[in-house]
Design a protein around this nucleic acid. Structure first.
Length: 539
RNA sequence: GGCGCAUUCGUCUAGUGGCCCAGGACGCCGCCCUCUCAAGGCGGAGAUCAGGGGUUCGAAUCCCCUAUGCGCUACCA
């Protein structure tokens, strides 16, 4: 009945860098590992070729709050690396100087840390291929050397066209319904013409000369073989006029230099993959394996964005979600262990994560299910753990006059709200009446359905001596004695306990009354009862 | 418009040609438990497997076509 968990038994760990999860792979992506054959190309790289190891990277660009989709991609890369005993590398792709947002690099790293995704190489930790920030790597000249190499080999050329000129060509082509890619006029410039333009000091970019015939294919680890007609692919820019490389060049050069074995990125990158494949070919680099992960969509099926609510991991943190819950929820967006497992430990994820169980269709981010999962994790905590997790939120949200929070007291409150709390950010609201010296509530709430003012007052007056005299202020004692008192008054438990609840907590919905009273303690309870009696008594 | 990818309950998904007139989970509904609110237990509704053609003794699963959705189509990543 139980299926063999996929992954176990197939890929032991280290020596299975292939990304092809098992002998029975349902996808015909059984191509051999390109890097494995690199030994043959000898010295083109570092020389010594051993068993290729899994080296994957997360390459965010610091242009704002890291989107939940890119964080999920980081998670998948990390799990893949851990599953195969490989390395997970973070590389900051800040080649777009115009879109840089200060502080976003910190946000990205903080998101990863919060989620428990540790990187083996990258900012802060460095590693054998440092630096890990492209603007710093730029200074090494690696991108320009690659571009020069391509120009020399006839695989790239300088282009002097202005944006306006290009826009014209493009719209013209569109009007003429030309199906093939726009051929860049500068590709046909003569040597003399180029010299002239350079002498004029004309600004230029470097374009890659895409082959204009034939096809380019990639054996995608998730989607199988994908093929493009080269004639529809354009001569994309590899070096911008500000001298910075574009993503296309930088990522190929760096992935090569950093010995990346698998490029696992979001599906939106699939269309530019033939460019990268051609770059690898022209540069004579052994290409990595590619795998394109499903995207994450909002409820309206469009790319998840601000309009759909929180889109960055840190927002979820501030909104009271647990990293454990968000991580678990995210891993299920596009991956599954089997037909049943949902709530699972990190360890289980690592042990079972294989690309073959990554699904193809884009997934919609279901906030409701995340909320449920957050509750599941919250309920699994020990009282101590829950109290510790709530503390920072209480310090943030509770009236400052109620601080500092007494940890011992909080630890006793924790079990009472554990089944009721769904977000840590609810903690203050759920527990405020434990801390307040003066309750704030509408006196009208004291008199509940089926009761009148006098009856309510009588109930309070009857409860007073019982609570005062209770031998030990524990929930079992209180339960017994108050239940008896209520019966004497001819009130149903619902009525009697209901009015007491409001008097003691100011709320109509709380954890069980007697447990709540026990934690509050005799003094607070009696004080609040007196207060309630005062509120109801005719002046 | 072009190119590419995708398509199983509202949503996340299981499914690797017979075990599937399709299983699990969230959400929803009902019942139970019960001092309120939760949590929990039990049950239910919910998918003509996008549609149409093939292949096969047999198709959610393989092939083709169509439709729809999404992505890309920047000196952004």
């Amino acid at each position: 009945m139980t299926r063999t968990p996929p992954g176990s038994g197939w890929c032991s760990t280290a020596p299975c860098p292939c990304g092809i999860p098992g002998p029975e792979s349902r996808r015909n992506s059984r191509a051999s590992h390109p890097k494995a054959s690199r030994a043959g190309r000898a010295g083109s790289d570092e020389g010594a070729m051993t068993t290729p190891a899994v080296r994957v990277r997360y390459a965010p660009s610091p242009t704002g709050q890291p989107h939940i989709g890119t964080v999920r991609t980081a998670l998948f890369n990390w799990l893949f690396a851990r599953h195969h005993g490989g390395k997970f590398i973070v590389r900051v792709e800040d080649t777009d100087q115009e879109r840089l947002v200060p502080g976003s690099q910190q946000n990205i790293l903080e998101s990863l840390k919060w989620l428990g995704i540790q990187w083996d190489e990258g900012p802060e930790v460095d590693g054998p291929f440092a630096p890990y920030i492209q603007s710093e790597r730029q200074k090494l000249g690696i991108y320009h050397r690659a571009a020069e190499q391509l120009i020399r080999g006839g695989n790239a050329y300088r282009c002097y066209c202005t944006r306006e000129q290009l826009e014209q060509v493009r719209t013209q082509q569109r009007e003429d319904k030309v199906q093939t890619r726009p051929k860049d006029p500068c590709s046909a410039l003569s040597h003399q013409q180029r010299r002239d333009r350079e002498a004029e000091g004309a600004p230029s970019v470097v374009r890659f000369a895409m082959p204009s015939t034939g096809t380019t294919s990639v054996q995608d680890l998730i989607r199988g073989e994908v093929t493009w007609q080269n004639e529809v692919l354009d001569d994309f820019i590899i070096i911008k006029s500000d001298g910075f490389p574009t993503y296309h060049l930088a990522n190929v050069v760096d992935d090569h230099l950093m010995d990346i074995s698998h490029v696992l990125r979001a599906e939106e990158w699939l269309p530019s993959t033939p460019r990268h494949v051609q770059l690898y070919r022209a540069l004579e680099y052994a290409p990595p394996l590619f795998g394109h992960m499903p995207m994450i969509l909002g409820p309206d099926r469009s790319k998840l964005s601000k309009r759909h609510g929180a889109t960055s991991a840190l927002e979820y943190r501030d909104n009271g979600y647990l990293p454990e819950a968000l991580r678990n929820f995210m891993v299920l967006l596009g991956w599954s262990l089997d037909d049943k497992s949902e709530v699972m430990s990190l360890d289980t994820m690592v042990q079972n994560f294989t690309l073959e169980r990554v699904s193809k269709p884009a997934a919609i981010f279901d906030q409701e299910k995340l909320l449920w999962m957050n509750g599941v994790y919250l309920r699994q905590f020990s009282h101590q753990e829950l109290a510790s997790r709530m503390l920072p939120f209480l310090e943030r949200d509770l009236d400052k006059r109620l601080l500092p929070v007494d940890m011992d007291y909080l630890r006793r409150i924790a079990p009472l709200i554990q089944e009721r709390i769904k977000l840590l950010s609810d903690a203050a609201d759920l527990t405020s009446y434990f801390f307040q010296s003066e309750l704030e509530y509408d006196s009208a709430n004291l008199v509940q359905k089926g009761m009148d003012q006098m009856g309510t007052l009588a109930a309070f007056r009857r409860a007073l001596p019982v609570l005062t005299a209770a031998p030990g202020f524990t929930h079992s004692v209180l339960d017994e004695s108050l239940r008896a008192a209520g019966a004497e008054l001819g009130l149903s438990p619902r009525q009697f306990f209901g009015v007491l609840r409001v008097a003691v907590t100011g709320r109509t919905a709380t954890p069980p009354l007697f447990e709540t009273m026990e934690v509050l303690g005799r003094q607070r309870v009696l004080g609040r009862l007196h207060e309630a009696i005062g509120r109801l008594s005719p002046a």
